[in-house]
Design a protein around this nucleic acid. Structure first.
Lengths: 301, 301
DNA sequence: AGAGGTTACGGGCAGCGTAAGGATC
DNA sequence: GATCCTTACGCTGCCCGTAACCTCT
């Protein structure tokens, strides 16, 4: 009985199939099959019923699953409490929504790779809806998205919120939101839906709300005078400082954007837990630095 | 991190030396050293201070030891609850005192090898004093001896007691214990010491108590008329039935011989626990069969 | 000098991936 | 026939034991 065999068994049990476990573990299907066979050989017990479509745990398999989970719980504890993080190896798949990608993601990844120098990072930037789906499908270990993910199998660690402010081309004078195009996030995102609903409510059905999947492009559109829009204050300082755009106040603004670092609770993943905590820390640090720069605030602009 | 590495670490920690652990695990010293190195490499942590004489756990090592013990506790549970015993492999070292060796040991070993067909047995028959020492020195996994072993690190499972009866050469007529040699167990055993003390008390310092390290030989001596002696009733039936020896009653008899199946509690050893239980069961069964044979009892002779 | 632990090195075996072979819907 | 799992097989790499080396008492 080896850790590899037990872990393979757990994944096959969790995912209900050799093939899926092989995918999850970056292994060939026969390798998983062999590990399973080896474990059954070692314990002299049949752990799965092979039933054409996938596999089903036997009674003994169910029993073993509980014990195996306990063992890997302790193994995680060893990794957390005893092991030097620089020894941790493996892949770590991070999903991130663009707002964070544009703000402090690079700092987070930098810090992470310092703490875990032997872990390979795999980054996906996408809209929160798709990140959520990827997380639930186990294609991601950690997702920094507009959360929380309200699923009992997900842990959500709050990240600093992003207050929004309206921005327009610098020196644009008065702005009539009912007339000028408003540029927002991608069409499938919550900020877009909330904003367009609010715009219609306030200014009638004639309003134009553009959507863009690229936050950077959106800001460029604003600085080009194509439209105006509500953006995280945190992303504006550079363009404001360069005289490209300026904040303005139409008398209201959309609610803050709330983000979370989210990961599956089961199976326990020390890297994801630590990563989420690290992300929260880096985010708070970054927010604190921003507050220290007066130019970042629209009140100062 | 592998089970082998963790187990090796545990043994080195428990025995305080690479060399001793290697001995215990039937491995070469470099193999143990390499496993240790591999574990330290995997966790990126120094687990032992190499200090000339032996090794000492570091702080991290102490921490790991606790976790490792938990893991192997669960692993034992898997072996007990999930695994088919016929899959268990390894060595099992049984120590046994001669009384049991002459009675139901073979049945026990037979049954054991049925339940654990892949376990290699290593049998030692010796006097209880030496068995006790071997057990404490980890040279034995299970000892069937005149117990209990009063040490808090030892579990004792009671085995059926052996009532004694006096035997002499068949047709020997009256027997004067003060005059005829009395044959007992080996000189270092408790039955010998108790018997000789009692003999002196009852019949004066002139009594002759012979000692023999072989129970079978003692009985042969009795049937040859060399002497008489108190022996387990359970061992007599064959010779009594063959007309070689006969029981007699000098008006008193030494107390029953009490045996236990004893094993170290730490580290937990499923094989030893199961073996002790199995021994108790086989012993009781054997005792029951004896009681069912009227010839076995001196009351019937 | 001797006990105890580490490094060096050749050989065996476990375990991987590719490719082919059932079984079940 | 499509899907899923197992068997067959060559190959790599890990880990063991032997032997030599280092380091404290």
């Amino acid at each position: 009985m080896t850790f590899d065999q037990l872990l393979t068994f757990l994944w096959v049990a969790r995912l209900g199939g050799v093939r899926r476990a092989a995918e999850q573990m970056h292994l060939s299907q026969p390798a998983v099959s062999a590990r399973l066979g080896g474990l059954e050989e070692a314990l002299r017990v049949t752990l799965f019923e092979r039933s054409g479509r996938g596999v089903v745990l036997t009674k003994e398999g169910e029993l073993l699953k509980g014990y195996a989970e306990q063992i890997f719980f302790i193994r995680e504890e060893i990794q957390r409490r005893v092991a030097d993080p620089s020894g941790v190896e493996g892949f770590f798949r991070v999903g991130c929504s663009e707002t964070i990608a544009q703000s402090w993601l690079s700092r987070f990844l930098e810090r992470f790779s310092e703490v875990y120098p032997r872990v390979s990072l795999e980054l996906t930037v996408d809209i929160s809806r798709d990140l959520r789906e990827a997380l639930m499908g186990r294609q991601l270990d950690l997702a920094l998205l507009m959360g929380p993910v309200s699923d009992c199998s997900v842990d959500n660690v709050d990240l600093p919120a992003f207050p929004l402010a309206w921005y327009r081309k610098a020196g644009g004078g008065d702005t009539d939101l009912a007339a000028v195009p408003v540029i927002s996030y991608a069409r499938q995102t919550r900020p877009y839906r909330d904003l367009s609903r609010e715009m219609v409510r306030r200014y009638g059905p004639g309003v134009r709300v553009y959507s863009s999947t690229s936050l950077a492009t959106s800001l460029q559109l604003v600085s080009a005078g194509v439209g105006v829009g509500p953006f995280p204050q945190a992303l504006a300082p550079a363009l404001v400082g360069a005289g490209e755009i300026e904040p303005f106040d139409p008398g209201w603004r959309p609610p803050d954007l709330h983000f979370t670092a989210s990961f599956l609770t089961e199976p326990r993943n020390a890297l994801a837990e630590e990563g989420a905590a690290l992300a929260a820390m880096v985010g708070r640090l970054w927010q604190g630095e921003l507050a220290a720069e007066p130019m970042a605030s629209p009140a100062a602009g």
